[in-house]
Nucleic acid binder design. Structure first.
Lengths: 221, 221
DNA sequence: ACATAGATACCGACCGGATGGTATTTATAT
DNA sequence: ATATAAATACCATCCGGTCGGTATCTATGT
């Protein structure tokens, strides 16, 4: 049974398989509880391969956070909400998309870097920084649309586009925690609904039926 | 040097000292990375004492979550925001209080049970349930004021008091994660500001200066 | 008042398996 | 041929947990 090679990468090379294993196993068990044997077994790789590609466990954590940043930014870049003409529609589309992808098992839709941050923020600054880069890099992609929406809707606010972008990430991270606590996805979606409602109120667009009295803004679509 | 006894509990009994140590050490390092030796050393107690009071590490986790629920509920019960006559003022006072206590080191103001939930939600259901009880028990204390405020302000909404109470906890949990990622408290406070702004908009009360056009609601106080 | 006994609280050396990491060897690509 | 990639065996330490023992408290009988 030949092991997979670069020419014949049945499931990708060992490094990629280890990063994918890290993404999945750490989201299930956390970073500290995940042993190197867990990772190697899940990746179908031996320890020799592990230490060939990563200096130690911490280096894998950093690489896993960077891998997460790359793959998720590509994922969101391809998402359909960018197609809207109106920047507010794009922003609301993003939130709706985040709600849509809350689906399947908890370890499938929750955030690797949010999970790792909680564990390593003091003990492993290098991992923490890589996680922060992922989270805030993603938040930054929302800022142009927020800023454009503010201008388009004449919003002069005491908050910045950056702070709203970051807040949206806080809501998502918190929603994931509550979903983990209950084992129930829907509680996370409820918080995303509140975030959506907040945006509608901030930008003066009428929410759906039964919301607080609308301000006569234009309807969606 | 006599060891502390029930009659002479210099620093409380071993069980309490272990729970306090768990609260502090786990908030710094996480549950999995915290060894029993860490806990015993921090508590000034031996392993014999540990296993006298707790069956195993998981049992300590459950007890620590319960201890957290007890101490925090007492802490919030004594907080001054309950003094307001208007239920919306009490709700906004709660949020303002949560913002105020974001102070000092990260491990001092972040949430033990939120941290533990992320790590153990799959591997230790008993701990997860104890954490959930703490989080949702605390959220439930907000519901009466939210419901009363909805009635007082004539809000007919497509969201429930429970969902808004839970959402407030999601915002706080997420704010803690982002603060850990950056090492900066202020980013957590910013998210609490957004939560506060959301409540003001939901209940039609005018926010401070520079907010979106006010709806002519009554002013604060 | 005092002795006795049982229960509770606590101590700390020790164990076996797990864990992060290393050294050496083997296979593949260029 | 040489560098890279990966497999295997191995090690020192750590860690959760055990166990026999000691000190202190409480209850009770006399």
């Amino acid at each position: 049974m030949p092991r997979p090679t670069k020419q014949n990468p049945e499931r990708g090379d060992a490094r990629t398989r280890l990063l994918e294993a890290a993404r999945d196993v750490i989201r299930s068990q956390g970073f500290a509880a995940t042993t190197l044997d867990d990772l190697c077994k899940s990746a179908g790789v031996t320890k020799g391969a592990f230490f060939h590609h990563f200096e130690n466990k911490e280096a894998l954590g950093v690489a896993a956070a960077a891998f997460w940043a790359e793959t998720t930014s590509a994922f969101f870049a391809e998402a359909p909400y960018h197609d809207h003409d109106d920047p507010l529609d794009r922003l609301l589309g993003y939130v709706a998309f985040r709600k849509e992808i809350i689906e399947g098992d908890l370890a499938e839709f929750t955030c690797l870097v949010g999970t790792m941050t909680q564990e390593v923020y003091l003990s492993h600054p290098a991992i923490r920084d890589a996680c922060a880069a992922s989270i805030f890099g993603h938040a930054a992609t929302l800022e142009p649309d927020i800023e454009a929406a503010m201008k388009a809707h004449g919003i002069a606010a005491d908050w910045t586009p950056a702070s709203l972008a970051v807040h949206s990430q806080a809501v998502l991270q918190g929603a994931f925690i509550l979903a983990k606590a209950t084992g129930d996805r829907t509680i996370a979606r409820d918080s995303v609904d509140h975030l959506q409602r907040y945006l509608l109120l901030l930008f003066g667009r009428a929410p759906g039926r039964n919301g607080p009295r609308a301000r006569g803004g234009q309807s969606h679509g």
